[in-house]
């Protein structure tokens, strides 16, 4: 799939979601892993828009890439906002997850869902670019949708 660049606003995030859904389908991911990947990318993209750009008074873009080999699908988000490493956020503790809702902290759940949902998550800072990588294993012998060739 060709990479896609969108303005970094919450309203544009559904375009990224569509991209991920399409990539997951092409990679032959099952329904639940595909949903978890979409959730992970959406959560991190939301943080990029709000913490990386808007709270800093910045505007900019997010670019999304899909890379696939026979074993895995990797979605990459790139932005030029302030350095923001999701892995440096404080982890949600098991105690927090057992608290009644009215006593919950509001932050951290998005990153928790991201890290629990994908097979591998990586963050890199390259020059002035943040790069977030989300990798999912592909099911064995998955055929891209639209490829009608029977498997020998």
């Amino acid at each position: 799939m060709e990479p896609l660049t969108v303005p970094a606003t919450l309203e544009e995030l559904e375009v990224l979601a569509d991209f991920v859904i399409q990539a997951a389908r092409t990679a032959g991911l099952e329904k639940k892993p595909a949903y978890r990947l979409r959730l992970a990318v959406d959560e991190i993209a939301t943080n990029i828009v709000t913490h990386g750009y808007q709270e800093m008074g910045l505007t900019g873009d997010i670019t999304i890439y899909a890379d696939m080999d026979e074993h895995s699908l990797t979605i990459t988000l790139e932005d030029s906002a302030v350095p923001y490493n999701p892995l440096e956020e404080e982890e949600v503790t098991p105690e927090e997850l057992h608290k009644p809702l009215e006593q919950r902290e509001l932050g951290g759940l998005g990153i928790f869902l991201t890290l629990r949902g994908v097979d591998r998550f990586t963050y890199e800072r390259m020059a002035n670019i943040n790069r977030n990588l989300f990798t999912m294993r592909r099911p064995p012998q998955s055929q891209p949708v639209g490829d009608a060739k029977p498997q020998e």
Binding site: R38, L39, D42, E43, T46, L109, G110, L113
Partner: peptide
């Protein structure tokens, strides 16, 4: 679909 923003609404 529900993101963590939905959880915060709950």
């Amino acid at each position: 679909y529900m993101a963590s923003a939905g959880l915060r609404c709950l």
